[in-house]
C-alpha cells in the first residue's frame, strides 16, 4: 500500500486514489463512528459525511498521520451528530426492546467457527459493552473507543482529539473506571475470566 502516493494523487483530484484510501480506512472509520454513536444508521451517515468532508478538505492535510487526520473528522462529525440528537431527540417508530438494546442482529458478528450459544453470548456481551459506552460522556467514550476498542496508542488518540497526552490518560482512566462499574451490572453475561470483582472503586 502506497498511502502517500494515494494521498498526493487524491490531493490532485484523483478520485480513484482517494477511494483506495476509503477502502483502507472505511472499516476503522465506521467502527469508531458506530461505537461513538451507538447505532448503525447514524454511524453510516457520519462515516459517509466524514469521507466526503475529507475529500473536500484534503488540501488542508499537511502530512503526519493520515489515519489520525481522518479519524478527527470522524469523531468531530460524530460529536456534531450527538449534539444534534440531544437537541432534537427522536422517538423510534417501533417500541424498543425491553432491555433497551438495539434489536438483535447477530448476522454481522457471525463467526463460522463458533456455536450458536457462543454467538449468542458474544452478541449479548457486545450489547452490554455498547450500553456501558453509551452512558459515558462523549470525551471519555472517545478515549476508551480509540485506545481500548480500536487498540490505538495514547499519542495517536491525543492527536485525534487534539488534547495533551495527560488529558487523554486521565480521561481513559476515568472511562475505564466507569466501564468497570457499569459492566458489573452485566456480570452474568461476562465469561468467567472477565468477571469483575467490584473492588477498589474510586
Amino acid at each position: 500500500m502506497n498511502e502517500e502516493q494515494w494521498i498526493k494523487d487524491a490531493q490532485a483530484g484523483d478520485l480513484d486514489a482517494f477511494n483506495r484510501l476509503v477502502i483502507s480506512y472505511q472499516g476503522l472509520a465506521y467502527n469508531v463512528a458506530y461505537r461513538l454513536l451507538g447505532d448503525d444508521a447514524s454511524a453510516q451517515d457520519a462515516t459517509q459525511d466524514a469521507f466526503i468532508s475529507a475529500y473536500r478538505n484534503l488540501r488542508s492535510y499537511k502530512g503526519g498521520s493520515f489515519k489520525a487526520w481522518l479519524l478527527r473528522i470522524v469523531t468531530n462529525g460524530s460529536y456534531d451528530e450527538l449534539r444534534r440528537q440531544k437537541r432534537r431527540p427522536q422517538l423510534p417508530l417501533e417500541p424498543e426492546p425491553l432491555d433497551g438494546e438495539d434489536a438483535p442482529d447477530p448476522a454481522w458478528m457471525a463467526d463460522p467457527g463458533e456455536s450458536p450459544a457462543e454467538l449468542a453470548e458474544r452478541v449479548e456481551l457486545n450489547a452490554a459493552i455498547q450500553r456501558c459506552l453509551n452512558q459515558l460522556e462523549d470525551e471519555f467514550r472517545t478515549a476508551v473507543v480509540l485506545i481500548d476498542v480500536q487498540g490505538m496508542d495514547y499519542s495517536e488518540a491525543a492527536e485525534i482529539v487534539k488534547r495533551p497526552l495527560g488529558t487523554v490518560k486521565s480521561r481513559l482512566a476515568r472511562a475505564r473506571s466507569r466501564m468497570q462499574e457499569c459492566l458489573q451490572g452485566f456480570a452474568e453475561l461476562l465469561p468467567d475470566k472477565f468477571r469483575l470483582t467490584g473492588e477498589g472503586k474510586p
Partner: peptide, 22 residues
Amino acid sequence: SLTKVRALLRRAPQRRVPRSFM
C-alpha cells in the same frame, strides 16, 4: 479489575462494514 475491563473492551467485536463508502 481494570485489566479485565481492558481485555473485555479489546474483545469487543468489530462490526463488518455494511456497505462501501467510496
